[in-house]
C-alpha cells in the first residue's frame, strides 16, 4: 500500500512525530511505500537541524534525516507554516533577508499543494497529531 503521512506536532512536546516515525519505519519494513511525509503546524519544527537533545534521548530530527537517506523518503515542510515558525532553507533565508538557515538534511520546503497531492496519490493519508 502507498501511504501519505501528515505530522502536525513538533518534536518532544508531543508524541505525534515519534509515532509517525515508528509507523513509517514499520510500513517500510512490511514492504509498503511512503509517498511523502508532510510536516504542518508545529510539525515543521521536526525539520530544524539545530536541535541538540540530551545524549541519552532519541534525536528525533536526525532520525528522520537518516530514515530519509536510507529509504529516499520525501520529507516536505510546509512553507507557510515554516515561515511563521522560523524554519528556513538557504534560498528562503536569502529571499526573506535572514542571516541563517536551519533546515535538516533530507527535508525540503514546499507548499500545501504537496499535502493535497499526497492525499490524491496515496492509498491512505494518515494524520499524526493532537
Amino acid at each position: 500500500m502507498k501511504f501519505g503521512i501528515l505530522v502536525n506536532e513538533g518534536p518532544y512536546t508531543h508524541e505525534a512525530s515519534d509515532t509517525a516515525y515508528q509507523f513509517v519505519k514499520a510500513a517500510l519494513a512490511k514492504g509498503h511505500e511512503i509517498y511523502r511525509v508532510f510536516f504542518y503546524h508545529d510539525g515543521v519544527n521536526n525539520g530544524t537541524r539545530l536541535t541538540v537533545p540530551p545524549q541519552d534521548d532519541r534525536n528525533i530530527v536526525k532520525r528522520w534525516s537518516e530514515l530519509a537517506a536510507e529509504h529516499k523518503l520525501d520529507l516536505v515542510v510546509c512553507i507557510a507554516a515554516a515561515q511563521r515558525r522560523g524554519l528556513m532553507d538557504k534560498s528562503e533565508a536569502k529571499r526573506n533577508g535572514k542571516d541563517a538557515d536551519n533546515i535538516a538534511p533530507g527535508f525540503r520546503i514546499s507548499g500545501l499543494g504537496q499535502l493535497i497531492e499526497a492525499g490524491i496519490q496515496s492509498d491512505r493519508l494518515v494524520v499524526f497529531g493532537d
Partner: peptide, 15 residues
C-alpha cells in the same frame, strides 16, 4: 486558521 489555509489551497485541485 491553518486548517482553512489547507482548504483554500486544496480547492485548486478540483477534488
Amino acid at each position: 486558521l491553518e486548517s482553512l489555509e489547507v482548504v483554500l489551497i486544496g480547492a485548486a485541485f478540483e477534488q
